[in-house]
Each structure stands twice: as C-alpha cells, then as structure tokens.
C-alpha cells in the first residue's frame, strides 16, 4: 500500500507574523518558513506504517511555488521515499485555496492509487481545516479527521479522533483519508545522514495543467488587518487586591 502525504510550506510556528502595511496579507519576505507542524506528524505516521511493514512507499506532495521543494526535502529526510511538487507560480501560490489543492491531490491520487492519504488537520497559516475533508469528498472515500491514533487491520483503518466531547473511534473502508491531530505521534528529528540522503531521492515536478485542474481562487481576500489589541492590564500585588478588582472594577465575580 502506498501512502500519500500532502505537506504545506508555511510560516514557522514560532514566528510572530506581521500584517503588511497595505493590508494585502501578512509579511512573508525574509520570514522563516517550515513544514506545517501537522504535516510533520502526518509524515511521521506514514513512515511508521512503512517501518511496521504496512505501507510499501511513502510519497510526499506539495502544491505551490518552487520553494516548496525545501519542505519536500525535509519530508524525505524524515523518511518519505519520493516527492511530487505540483508547481504554480508565486502569485498563484499565494491564492491557492483548499478546494483547488484538493482537486490537485485528487488527480494525483488517481495516478498513484494510494491506500491511504494522511494530511494535517489544518495549515497554521490560513487555519482552514478543509483540505482532507474535501479530498475525501471528491474521491468518495471515507474520512477520519483530527486523528490521535491510527491502526490498520484487515484492510480497514481504525482511527481514534479528538472531538469536542472527548474521543471516538471509527472503523472505515480503505482507501481512506486521515487528518492528523497533535497527539497522534511525536515526529523524529531528521538526522544529518538522512538529510544528505534526501537530496538524492526523486522529486517530480508537475504543473496544474498536466493534471487538468483549474486552480482559480473562489474567495477574494479584500484585506488583512491586525486584530484589535487588548488594553494593557495591570499587575496586582496580592490575592486581596485581585479579588477586590474582580469584584468592584471588573464586576465578574
């Protein structure tokens, strides 16, 4: 069974993002970029399936500008066997939306016939939380979002999901789509030898046209602004002052 892992290049989660002065988006020039944290978890899960003898090949795929090759190399350093870049120009990459990505991924799934696609539950830039569900819909496959445990038994996927009230476990037919939550696993670090090895692994480049997919955006971003700032608060000296403030000033207790 092949496992396909879509990975996104995003602003590193430690970076404090700044909104551009012209309100067209957030500043990306000179900002540290990284593999989306949830996708790192997805790669790790796929690699573990391979190490357990369940998966035969792990393919990382990214849709976006040329620079996404960096994140694909990272995914291969973590254990993916090969990679596919669906390359767009930089302007298209900035407005690539979940539905378009899902369509590109669907076209690649038709070529590669994976038994499982493992995505992150959300990309930490747009916080969309859509692509996996959309891909599952387009393929007519079952979906297990927000996974904290994945077990493959007798041709079915048994996935434990983090839901608002607690946890639930679903059993589903395969092929299937899984999206990862933070507690699914703890990704390994890429070792230096593996980083070097990853440079030699195959990385194919396709264009959206090769896949016959229209990637035009459906949503137009009119502006991006900073959220209203909270007024700076005060430090209180002790519990008595805190209680007094909460009672008399804030009137919340």
């Amino acid at each position: 069974m092949k496992v396909l892992v879509p990975v996104k290049r995003v602003v590193d989660y430690n970076v404090r993002v700044r909104v551009r002065a012209d309100q067209s988006g957030v500043e990306l020039a000179g900002v540290k970029m990284a593999l989306n944290p949830f996708d790192e978890i997805a790669v790790e899960e796929a690699v573990r399936l391979k190490e357990a003898g369940i998966a035969t090949e792990v393919i990382a795929i990214s849709c976006g500008a040329t620079q996404c090759q960096e994140q694909l190399r990272t995914a291969m350093a973590l254990g993916a066997d090969r990679a596919i870049l669906v390359e767009t120009d930089a302007a298209q990459a900035e407005v690539l939306q979940a539905l378009a990505v899902a369509k590109l991924l669907m076209a690649v799934c038709e070529r590669e016939q994976p038994g499982l696609v493992i995505l992150g539950k959300q990309a930490i830039d747009d916080d969309a939380n859509q692509t996996g569900q959309m891909l599952a819909a387009l393929l007519g496959w079952p979906q297990a979002t927000f996974a904290s445990k994945v077990v493959i038994v007798a041709g079915r996927a048994e996935v434990t999901r983090e839901i608002d009230g607690g946890l639930e476990t679903l059993s589903m037919t395969m092929p299937a789509v899984v999206t990862t939550d933070l507690r699914l696993n703890e990704p390994r670090y890429a070792s230096l030898p593996n980083i070097i090895k990853a440079k030699k692994k195959p990385l194919d480049v396709l264009r959206p046209n090769d896949l016959g997919v229209d990637i035009a955006p459906r949503l137009t971003i009119l502006k991006v602004v900073e959220p209203p700032r909270r007024q700076t608060g005060v430090k209180v000296a002790d519990v008595a002052e805190l209680v007094a403030k909460l009672r008399n000033e804030a009137k919340v207790i």
């Binding site: 747009d126 939380n129 859509q130 891909l135 819909a137 839901i163 949503l219």
Partner: peptide
C-alpha cells in the same frame, strides 16, 4: 469538531469553497 469535519465535505461535493470559522 462536528461542523469542521462535515462542512468541507459538503462544499467540495457542491464544488464551492468553504469559508472557515
């Protein structure tokens, strides 16, 4: 978690974007 799981699936089947949260 209910709506986030469900609505992107609906949107893709209708071939429209989903606007999150």
């Amino acid at each position: 978690s209910f709506g986030k799981n469900l609505l992107p699936r609906v949107a893709a089947l209708l071939d429209v974007a989903q606007i999150s949260e």
